[in-house]
């Protein structure tokens, strides 16, 4: 009996130690992290960063509520999900309440590895699984832009999540499954414009985050990427299939997709609603070539029937 108890206690102890090690932000960084090194002659440029700001739709989540000003990034928007409520934080350059006190290294770590300056894991409602694809120079430009917008005072309330999702440490396990740490690598068999589209869609644009179904663990299903999914709020709403399948964008021409991204009107002159209307406003800030690149990439995806 005593022996049995000893075995159980050791198993619990070893399990606890294993969990602690596997969920360690430092270990993840050591294995999957990348050094934050910028080319010698590189000068970050806020103007170039602004393009990435719109491509990334940062304001859609982070703008101050209830303001309509998209460069006031005080946060406060509540993302209602099956895991609980995420309260979007302040990312304005306010030194105390926003990210004004961050160094570029802190920003890169958050965007690529989901690690916050206090050493904790960020929740993947902040889509670093996509942002990790961005180049370090683009991240530097985006960071430079983020420092040019107004500082907004006020910290947001903490997230209100259900157990066990409220244990940040546990995200360490999730990251081993869903965060590979790889930057975007161009496909040399494709055109430069196609690669530009692939980079925007899979990196800053993070389109797959809503337009793909998720596993029970809340990660994207890799074989059903872009086949559409459920609204992240856990409601009955559906997010459309982006692949060129007949129940996706199969009947849309390149020009149809470009026009939609610019104006929000579908080929049958219906107009986008909900969170996509917000995305269209952001896409309207990109230049025509970026929208063409996105269209070209989407048309090249493998056609998949819409995800259940």
């Amino acid at each position: 009996m005593r022996r049995f108890l000893l075995i159980v206690l050791s198993a619990v102890f070893l399990g606890g130690v294993g969990f602690w090690i596997l969920t360690s932000p430092a270990l993840f960084h050591a294995v999957r992290g990348r050094a934050v090194t910028l080319p010698d002659a590189f000068q970050a440029d806020a103007g170039r960063g602004e393009r990435l700001f719109w491509a990334g739709g940062c304001a859609s989540c982070h703008k101050s509520e209830p303001s309509d000003n998209k460069v006031l990034l005080g946060g406060g928007h509540e993302l209602k999900t099956p895991f609980g409520i995420f309260v979007v934080p302040n990312i304005s350059p306010h030194p105390r309440d926003g990210i004004g006190g961050w160094r570029f290294e802190d920003f890169a770590l958050a965007m690529r590895e989901g690690l916050l300056p206090d050493g904790s894991h960020a929740f993947p409602a902040f889509p670093y699984t996509a942002y990790q694809r961005m180049s370090v120079t683009d991240l530097a430009d985006l960071f430079a832009f983020s420092q040019t917008v107004p500082a907004v005072e006020g910290r947001q309330a903490p997230h209100a999540l259900a157990f066990p999702f409220n244990i940040r440490r546990g995200l360490g396990l999730w990251k081993w499954l869903y965060l590979d740490g790889a930057e975007f690598s161009a496909d040399s068999s494709q055109s430069a414009l196609w690669n530009q589209g692939a980079y925007l869609v899979n990196g800053a644009g993070h389109c797959a985050e809503c337009h793909s179904p998720r596993t029970v663990l809340g990660g994207l299903s890799p074989d059903k990427r872009f086949a559409g999914g459920r609204m992240p709020d856990g409601g009955a709403g559906r997010v459309p299939n982006l692949t060129p399948h007949q129940d996706g964008l199969g009947s849309w021409s390149l020009e149809d997709i470009e026009e939609f991204l610019k104006t929000g009107f579908t080929p049958s002159f219906d107009s986008a609603g909900g969170s996509m209307a917000e995305v269209i406003k952001n896409m309207g800030h990109l230049n025509g070539e970026d929208r063409k690149a996105i269209a070209l990439y989407l048309k090249s995806l493998k056609p998949l029937p819409k995800a259940p």
Partner: peptide
């Protein structure tokens, strides 16, 4: 789009 953004559900 201005109206659909807020008042149209998926």
């Amino acid at each position: 789009g201005g109206c659909h953004e807020t008042y149209r559900a998926e």
